[in-house]
Write a protein that binds this DNA or RNA. Structure first.
Lengths: 196, 196
DNA sequence: AATTATTATGAATAATGATTCATTTTTTGT
DNA sequence: ACAAAAAATGAATCATTATTCATAATAATT
């Protein structure tokens, strides 16, 4: 077995265990058992428990960024781009529910227990939104007065909160794609009735 | 000293310590020291460490709900109501930064380590949003096709993410009130240019 | 003032689980 | 096939801390 395979086996086991029990309640021995390796083996690939989390976070966010950038590559309409981003984000949940749970949690917790850690990967991910907004303003599609930096946080927050709900509730009313479209629609056109 | 005083002293100490170190890294002895009581005293008022967190969450969200309901009482315009909610939510950060940090964290974590715990207080808090939306639809201010249940999550998520940013960053560009207004504006009118 | 009830203390307990490292197994090179 | 290097093992260590409880301090009652 190649080195990288074992690294990945441990990472994937960690995703499962962290999602199931949360980071602090997850035991190294749980991860080892799930990955079918000895406890000590984990320390050949990671420095410590935190390191597993950080490493997994960076790797996985990296993949997500690559995928969404690929999806956006051939689209020029900013409205469509926003929708693609939303659908992609929500779809993650379907494909990798456990991963999404871990990422959501990690995002809130990491800065509490690892002060030095600056989450550049996450910033890269949400900056895709502000780039879309900026582009849309230049092309005249989006209002000049909205602030890309605010929209990016608000839009991400909205999507993230919806996926949190989805991850928890057993029986959602709508499909993830419908939900993503609804949120995109609200951000694009607002909820107020137009009286023109 | 009245019993309730000590209960509250411990709760407030816990807010400080949880905000500083996170729930899992906070030691009971830290909280005891902060509250200036003995470790054992804490167990006269709370069953265990989780209980402190839950109890504090319910109490504090309860107060927040009461305050925002009071603020909304004399307002009838749904657009204004939404803005009031947003401003109130963001203002919490100014007044009780530590508390907000703890609540945000707890929201993500609680369901991980206490399976039975259904967060009814939190639901009550965000249901205020869907009530506003519903009211606005009945009065003809808001579009019929948006779903109050989706808007409430999206709106809360947007506000929550903005406060997360605020709690982390040392030097924000705008005041909390401006930020709250911007988010409300986006939800009300969207970001797309109107061509009527 | 003496007795009882209530509240508080903090050292001792007891369980937990991350990390280490001496030993074993597997792989690589000759 | 052998030796050397690399990778893997998992039991033992060691630190950490939530919780308990025998004792002490304080308050209430007679």
């Amino acid at each position: 077995m190649r080195v990288s395979d074992k690294h990945q086996k441990i990472t994937q086991a960690a995703v499962k265990v962290f999602a199931r029990k949360g980071f602090f309640n997850a035991r190294i021995s749980d991860i080892a058992k799930e990955a079918k390796v000895a406890d000590g083996t984990i320390y050949l690939y990671f420095n410590n428990k935190y390191d597993i989390l950080i490493s997994l976070f960076e790797d996985e966010i990296g993949k997500i960024i690559m995928k969404v950038k690929l999806l956006l590559e051939n689209e020029t309409d900013p409205l469509k781009m926003l929708e693609i981003y939303a659908i992609h984000h929500m779809s993650l949940l379907q494909e990798q529910k456990e991963l999404v749970e871990v990422l959501q949690m990690e995002l809130r917790q990491s800065n509490k227990f690892i002060k030095e850690y600056r989450n550049t990967k996450f910033i890269e991910y949400i900056d895709i939104i502000s780039e879309i907004i900026h582009k849309g303003q230049q092309s005249g599609h989006f209002r000049q007065e909205v602030m890309p930096g605010v929209v990016k946080r608000a839009f991400f927050g909205a999507l993230d909160e919806m996926s949190r709900l989805w991850a928890l509730s057993a029986k959602p009313k709508y499909t993830l794609e419908e939900t993503a479209k609804q949120i995109t629609d609200i951000f694009q056109h607002g909820i107020v009735v137009r009286n023109s």
